[in-house]
């Protein structure tokens, strides 16, 4: 089988996905009913276009079942202070256990989320509670980025950033 090597994610996109403070993951079931969850952090392999997103299993039962059934995902990463937002999509998502370093990424993301939101007027205990996940409940959703979209609020939101391959 002739397989083309993936076009790497550009640095800016990869950096933003990995550093975004507000992360939301969606999927859908076999009947196209969408599911949705706040995610606890994200790691990116730009060369392979692979993204690993961490979610709390207790909060994500429907989403994890949907991924198992359809493998379709949409991930939105945003920086609340600037509204800068990206959406990436994939159709090969799988659920995996955490690997070395994943828990640390999730913990760092929780603090980054608080750092970002407190200056915007949110209470620190509130921001920390949003991402208070027991490590043993975290799992990773891994997928290959198939398409990226600008999602910063406004009329340009939804524009595809890379030409379809």
């Amino acid at each position: 089988m002739d397989r083309q090597p993936p076009v790497p994610l550009d640095d800016e996109t990869a950096r933003f996905l990995a550093s975004g403070e507000s992360i939301t993951l969606g999927s859908r079931d076999v009947r196209c009913v969408p599911s949705l969850i706040k995610a606890a952090g994200c790691r990116v392999d730009a060369a392979l276009r692979r993204v690993r997103v961490f979610v709390d299993r207790r909060q994500a039962r429907q989403l994890l079942a949907d991924i198992a059934a359809t493998r379709a995902v949409a991930l939105v990463v945003s920086r609340p202070s600037t509204h800068h937002t990206l959406q990436v999509k994939g159709n090969d998502a799988v659920v995996e256990p955490l690997r070395d370093g994943d828990a640390e990424v999730a913990a760092a993301h929780r603090l980054a989320f608080a750092r970002e939101l407190v200056p915007l007027g949110y209470r620190r205990d509130w921001t920390l509670a949003i991402h208070e996940f027991p490590v043993e409940e975290l799992v990773a959703v891994a997928f290959t980025v198939d398409a990226t979209y600008a999602q910063t609020p406004g009329p340009g939101a939804g524009a595809r950033l890379e030409a379809p391959r």
């Binding site: 939301t24 993951l25 969606g26 999927s27 859908r28 196209c32 009913v33 969408p34 599911s35 949705l36 706040k38 359809t70 379709a72 995902v73 949409a74 991930l75 939105v76 945003s78 609340p80 937002t85 959406q87 999509k89 159709n91 999602q151 609020p153 939101a157």
Partner: peptide, 17 residues
């Protein structure tokens, strides 16, 4: 802000603020 997920007829989910 709230988050909204929808899905197109081809089964591609979409998430937005």
């Amino acid at each position: 802000p709230s988050m909204l997920a929808t899905c197109d007829v081809n089964g591609v989910p979409n998430v937005t603020y």
